[in-house]
Nucleic acid binder design. Sequence first.
DNA 1: AAAATAACTAAACGAACGTTTAGATAAAAT
DNA 2: ATTTTATCTAAACGTTCGTTTAGTTATTTT
Lengths: 187, 187
Amino acid sequence: MARKKGYNETEVLEKAMHLFWGNGYEATSMQMLEKEMGINKFSIYSSFGNKHSLFLESLKHYKLNVSNTLETLKSGTNGVSDIKQFFYDSINSNFKQGHQKGCLVTNTYNEFSKSEDHLIKEQMSIFMDNLKHIFIEKLKMDTSKNDSTILKQANYLLLAKHGLAAASRVNTKEEIEDYIEMTFNNI
Amino acid sequence: MARKKGYNETEVLEKAMHLFWGNGYEATSMQMLEKEMGINKFSIYSSFGNKHSLFLESLKHYKLNVSNTLETLKSGTNGVSDIKQFFYDSINSNFKQGHQKGCLVTNTYNEFSKSEDHLIKEQMSIFMDNLKHIFIEKLKMDTSKNDSTILKQANYLLLAKHGLAAASRVNTKEEIEDYIEMTFNNI
DNA sequence: AAAATAACTAAACGAACGTTTAGATAAAAT
DNA sequence: ATTTTATCTAAACGTTCGTTTAGTTATTTT
């Protein structure tokens, strides 16, 4: 019938994701996206609707990428040390890729914490709750803990992830490793 | 000679500070500032130069407000438990004022971590380094600790402050208190 | 080869941004 | 009371934002 797309949608989405990841939603302009994705504004809009839905797709793509890490975490049988390994995995993948952009979900969570964008806020809450429940399941593997302790520790680890996310944007790998060690010292 | 200002510069600066504090720099528009400060754009510009310098003044004003807390921390003689009290003080002042805006410095630190605004980034670094050194001095009060441990613990507490800041924007007071308790369990 | 149609380029859209300016207003000084 | 001068109002500035649209190009099908 007619001409075929000159680009791969998954490929350009990945590039958009990295841009959002590094700069956040607001600080990423359509102009920057055009340049980074290598395609025209028209093509972006025809493929992804608008900036907001492109961001949602980027988030979805990010979660798909980390879902392996999350599955590894869930399927592990070593309780707390699995969570610790999960923390290490997330910073290792950051440094291996040569960037220090932290965690896209945590970044987004922070950027939108006071916004009125309820759709994105809800998505973030779901992701965070999900992670919290995984932590709880892991902590339950240690039968010596009571439910109250487990809840507190799960919350503690979830908030520690915020510290980790902030750190993985500015601190050195050694400082981050020290932070992880200290975080798990008392659990 | 002529007419007097119809507003108090310190008062309107305080209002600007609270707006920046709650929404961040970029998400706060001149229109919002006009409304919140209760004065016209012209007055804002004639009193504070531009948005950027108004933000710098807001930061300065914020630091002046927390300087009491910081002085209390420095002058204490109880080492680690002084730091713990400092953590409690900062969240208490947040909840007492009926808002959950976290810490303006930490918010700014996060918002500008990947920006090119070197002036603000430098100011943030200075503030964070300053806090870190105070933590180190506190930790030194426990003579049983060696220098390597102290450095790691200071870094840990500084990053814990990021978790605290994130928490104080979304979590309940009880969850935040639990987080603080857990943070200091292993120090 | 011609017709059809989707992908492309590039220009323009209205709205909102931070900032400036011209003119009206009001209070202090003569 | 008049002059002077800083403060205020309100409109407009030039940019940039996200988004749309008209017109051109290229590829597939008839």
